[in-house]
Design a protein around this nucleic acid. Structure first.
Lengths: 181, 181
DNA sequence: CATAGCATGTAAACAGTTACATGATTAT
DNA sequence: ATAATCATGTAACTGTTTACATGCTATG
């Protein structure tokens, strides 16, 4: 009961920003949040229905022509549930990392294989960093003008720092492999 | 077919170091590998049985008194399967991060809540860093004496770099919250 | 003699993705 | 016309954890 079903909190959190329909929640998650949280449709819609059943959100059906949207709004009950989760401290599980796992077993393949993985990962990190930096600059400007709360920036900065560290690690690792194989 | 069932590769990888029984694989995973890869018993034993069925490992039953161990060894077929996976490039999925998700929704709770989370996370990172640094020092010494291949060090360094970056992020984030709330 | 560690495993529940199904609307 | 986007959802599958079940052996 303490864990699991974090999907509901991710949804409640998104709805705490503004009321949205399922599709919009999906989009919101596929843009900003996707760098640190992902949900699939197969999770989203059933969870949304469940939240409504438990009165944590309300549903308002909007019919534009024959197009049917369901706009979800967070209720007071939902906000309290979200807050309860927000104040709870998180547990720290180091995440699975397939690249590190592969490198760990690197003695089974030629050194160039591991170096290739590291170079490819560097490229991915550079690309991600570029995107993060753009979002970061945008957010900094908006925070200074008091349009945005600072919290979105923290999330982006987490990405920036993580990717910078990975780039650093890739460079060092290539040097180490070249030195010790 | 391209993805999934990475458990088998983690096991094959561990067995590429030396033959072990299930319990020892478990222990090996619960020590070194756990920082970037975790497996539970519910995954380990059925996968091990499956690897044996597919001739990727062999089983040798050792009876010490009434205590029964099954010692698993990787076969040539298993080594090839492992190598095939090792040379394949990994996909880059940013991992889920509950702490960042919580901070992202920080405007729903007082600033001190988010700061508390960040301080607690700093402490966890400091503790992890201490452990990583000890392992790192040990490995560096062993690599210089050519006892160990360099690849274990890379994995530890990934942890060191990641945790250092998180510490940095925690410090900056606290400053930002204090400044902009 | 009790507890921790060695040793193997299973069943049920839960988490999560993928692929599919359906249909309207807008832009090219 | 047709492709992209809006919009909602389900079913089947896979992955993963948790909790349990069993029993031996060494140590304090």
């Amino acid at each position: 009961m303490n864990k699991g079903n974090k999907t509901q909190y991710a949804i409640l959190g998104v709805l705490s920003i503004q009321p949205m329909c399922g599709y919009e929640i999906r989009k919101a998650m596929d843009t900003s949040i996707k760098y640190f949280w992902q949900e699939s449709n197969g999770q989203l819609y059933p969870t949304l229905a469940n939240l409504a059943k438990n009165k944590l959100v309300t549903v308002e059906k909007q019919a534009i022509g024959k197009k049917n949207r369901k706009v979800y709004s967070i209720t007071t009950l939902g906000k309290n549930k979200l807050k309860d989760w927000l104040v709870q401290s998180t547990e720290y599980y180091p995440a699975r990392n397939e690249l590190v796992l592969k490198l760990f077993f690197g003695q089974n393949v030629p050194a160039k294989v591991s170096i290739k993985h590291l170079k490819k990962h560097s490229e991915r990190c550079e690309a991600a960093l570029k995107i993060y930096r753009e979002i970061e600059a945008q957010l900094v400007a908006e925070i200074k003008q008091k349009i945005r709360p600072v919290y979105f920036l923290l999330a982006v900065k987490a990405g920036v720092k993580a990717v910078e560290a990975e780039l650093d690690w890739c460079r060092e690792s290539i040097t180490l492999i070249n030195k010790y194989t």
